[in-house]
Design a protein around this nucleic acid. Structure first.
Lengths: 248, 248
DNA sequence: CGGGGGGTTGATCTCCTTCAATCAACGTGG
DNA sequence: CCACGTTGATTGAAGGAGATCAACCCCCCG
């Protein structure tokens, strides 16, 4: 429960699983070498907090494997997830010294961290990094705006369907499945985490998942294993255009 | 109502009101000259649509004066505002060919537009532009995440208070008022636009504004002119830390 | 066996939506 | 100048979606 191993995980950038998707995606081998000098790996266990909001941050980094969440909390305890960090996603904001959100590992997690100030120097001297970071940030902004529509205007059922379709889509792209047959995946989040993501209570999440199951939109084995027999149907339930997100 | 004048508004970058806040903030005079060659001004009247979601975009640009909104709409008509564009804010995404959101002028609006492909070329050749855009995008992402908390977890009253405090703060910083005395500003949005921003109905917006007025949190002259006698009180109502957002 | 974390389900309550009437300000045309 | 329509806003009454409170289940693990 407590042991946080800060071991350096033997890892060559060349065969890093996120080599072509993370901030370093555009770097050439020279640049990778310079990054290598300021990087180190950290491992977190499921449930561990990576950073507390307000804490001084002396690193930025990428999720290598596992899943983490970005959450905001009000004084009275209400919490809202504002980001779901998947492999290749970037953590931290160059130029900011303290964390703005809580970052929590929801599964076992490996991060590739860069010491903050040398990384910031590299950002200005290495356009490839800044360019890639801009691209990733714009994508995140789009995702956040999509999520604002979900939070502001969708019903509980639509919210659940939206979350499921996002996870399904992401999982499909990760495993290179064809999106045609029935999709199968595991929910990486507890009911409570889903509630925090969707601005609902965990009870409502549970009820709506049951309802979608009862209506045959999804199949459930256990509490986490989901099968989507008809993706278009799910997208319809989400209130999205069913014409599919081939996506820009 | 219909006339859209595409006149070139005589304007030197040097005395442009957003010279030091927009994408061009870090450009030197050489770079400004190159930007000058690909830029043109456009003027829109209040209520006019600047771009429809899905439309081909052949430009990107900055808001010079006035206010515009970024909104998403579902097939059944539900709409959610996902951005409020103020002077110096950037419109459009380099690398994307069609608009992802509707952009609507809520007041008379002047935009400084750049032809898209030459701008994209400049982005790669001119780090100052990409750097500034990254900074601005990170700020927007923070704002979007703040807004996700508002949408997902705050009550109607808190939502209204949050919106008012954001507008108040922005207005104060614009007019260099001291934030201590009572703040005074005009609402740049209709009740309906506020509702679209907050994920509420316009009736609820109206009721909660009346309630805040009744409770002395704000004073109203007419429907748009707001006085905030005690900013800390308003922040309390918004559910924010009252210690103020001096901000990172 | 006990205990705790995660999940489901039920009963009740409440905050916000929905539907609807009304109002003030404004412009337009007869 | 007044009747009329329009747009933005306020207010009321009724209903419902989701929150809240609570009981209970399942499963794993010490």
């Amino acid at each position: 429960m407590f042991k946080e191993r800060t071991l350096t995980i033997p890892h060559e950038c060349e065969d890093c699983p996120i080599r072509h998707k993370a901030v370093c995606a555009r770097c050439d081998s020279d640049e990778l070498e310079r990054l290598d000098e300021i990087k180190y790996y950290r491992r977190f266990e499921a449930g561990q907090t990576v950073i507390w909001s307000g804490d001084r941050m002396d690193f930025v980094g990428s999720v290598v494997s596992g899943i983490a969440t970005l959450t905001q909390t009000m004084e009275d305890g209400r919490t809202q997830m504002v980001g779901l960090l998947l492999p290749s996603d970037f953590v931290g904001r160059p130029g900011r010294e303290s964390a703005a959100y809580d970052v929590v590992a929801t599964t076992d997690l490996v991060m590739c961290c860069f010491r903050k100030s040398p990384f910031e120097e590299m950002m200005t001297s290495t356009p490839h990094i800044a360019q890639r970071l801009l691209e990733m940030t714009l994508d995140e902004l789009d995702a956040a705006r999509e999520w604002m529509l979900v939070l502001g205007r969708k019903t509980a059922r639509e919210k659940i369907a939206s979350l499921l379709s996002i996870i399904a889509r992401r999982d499909a792209s990760l495993h290179m499945q064809n999106a045609e047959g029935s999709l199968v995946f595991d929910l990486p989040l507890t009911r409570e985490a889903m509630a925090d993501y969707l601005g609902l209570t965990l009870e409502t999440v549970s009820r709506q998942i049951s309802a979608l199951k009862r209506d045959g939109v999804i199949l459930l084995e256990g509490k986490r294993h989901v099968t989507v027999p008809d993706m278009d149907r799910l997208l319809e339930e989400a209130g999205d255009d069913a014409d599919g997100g081939v996506f820009a």
